[in-house]
């Protein structure tokens, strides 16, 4: 319409590998490493190098990535301040535990690998559906609240969910749910984490994601562009809850024992610490935050107990300090609003 000076920025050079392809390459690479790792640890090969404890750590990292990435959808992209993520995780964990122990035959009664796969698909699918349903309901109830009040209400629901489970005798009440079969391993968690990251990336880099971010950037403008904020928020809540449920389902079938208390405010806070460490509105940040936090805690534990065994507990004091220091010095976290290339959108189709 008007005459503009020539473009100041030349278009970036065409990319050799589109991000779509790069994403699959990363997936293939991770699975190519995970499969032999899992098999060798299962077979007890190289016990000196491949400590099962390391695999356990990697499994925890994978589950936490699912939790943190899905919370990032709400707190990073949608720009809300949801404080009840552990509640959705609890719903998923208990649903999966119930399905695995009461509704499904044990894996031993089914053909070896296929049987476990079927059990996982059913239990995790159930966990996701149930958590999504609860997330949807909570989204419906809270559609008018924003900011601080949304934080309060989501935390309130977290506590109500935990409290409700404590009062349900058939899932063990406050004593917890025991005897859950161990249907997951690192490999299954890795597949689920990659699936979560892929699906979340796809959604974020679609019209849905643009609408979520626009709500964060300016809710009134978004509304006056025809966005139904209640509807968009409710989708985000439902999706985030579903993935938290997935993590819960994996958690239950990995730990084999869950109590209501493991899903309270403290767990939510831990998820928040990893989220903010990694950075808001960045899936890469979510991965990095989880890995950095987990490794740091391990490192601190080893370092402190090298001085004196009882000192190891003092790392609990260091993790909140890290959080405070991040907030005081680098509020965007390690990777706020930035993505690694394999998670980035296509530049120009």
């Amino acid at each position: 319409m008007s005459t503009k000076p020539p473009p100041e920025h030349a278009a970036p050079p065409p990319e050799l590998t589109p991000s779509r392809v790069r994403f699959w390459m990363v997936c293939a690479l991770i699975l190519a490493l995970a499969l032999p790792l899992q098999l060798s640890v299962d077979a007890g090969l190289f016990p000196d190098v491949l400590n099962p404890y390391y695999l356990h750590l990697l499994t925890i990292i994978g589950m936490n990535i699912i939790l943190v990435a899905s919370l990032n959808l709400l707190n990073g992209y949608l720009g809300e301040f949801a404080l009840g993520h552990a509640g959705f995780m609890a719903v998923g964990a208990y649903t999966a535990a119930l399905l695995a122990t009461k509704a499904l035959p044990s894996a031993a009664a089914l053909p070896p690998v296929l049987g476990t796969c079927i059990i996982l698909v059913v239990t995790l699918g159930g966990a996701m559906l149930m958590a999504a349903g609860i997330g949807y309901l909570i989204g419906l109830v809270t559609f008018k609240t924003v900011g601080d009040y949304l934080a309060i209400i989501t935390l309130g629901f977290n506590m109500i969910i935990v409290n409700a489970i404590q009062n349900l005798d058939f899932v063990g009440g406050p004593r917890g749910f025991t005897g859950i079969p161990k249907n997951t391993n690192f490999l299954a968690v890795a597949v689920c984490a990659l699936l979560t990251l892929g699906l979340l990336r796809n959604l974020i880099q679609s019209s849905f994601g643009r609408v979520w971010v626009s709500i964060r950037e300016n809710a009134i403008a978004a509304e006056l562009m025809g966005v139904s904020i209640a509807k968009a928020k409710n989708w985000a809540f439902t999706i985030a809850a579903a993935f938290a449920g997935l993590a819960g389902g994996l958690w239950a079938q990995n730990q084999q024992f869950i109590t209501p208390r493991s899903f309270d405010y403290i767990k939510t806070t831990e998820i928040l610490v990893m989220l903010y460490l990694g950075g808001m509105a960045s899936l890469s940040g979510s991965i990095l935050g989880v890995v950095a936090y987990t490794l740091l805690m391990e490192l601190l534990r080893n370092l402190l107990s090298a001085f004196a065994p009882q000192l190891a507990e003092w790392r609990m004091l260091i993790s909140p300090l890290i959080l405070i220091i991040i907030m005081l010095t680098r509020q965007t976290g390690l990777l706020g609003n930035r993505e690694w290339r394999w998670l980035r959108p296509r530049q120009g189709a």
Partner: peptide, 17 residues
């Protein structure tokens, strides 16, 4: 009231939601 942290392009593409 732009979506300040979104790209110029995304500001428009978003409007086509």
């Amino acid at each position: 009231r732009l979506f300040a942290q979104m790209t110029v392009l995304d500001n428009i593409t978003m409007a086509l939601h």
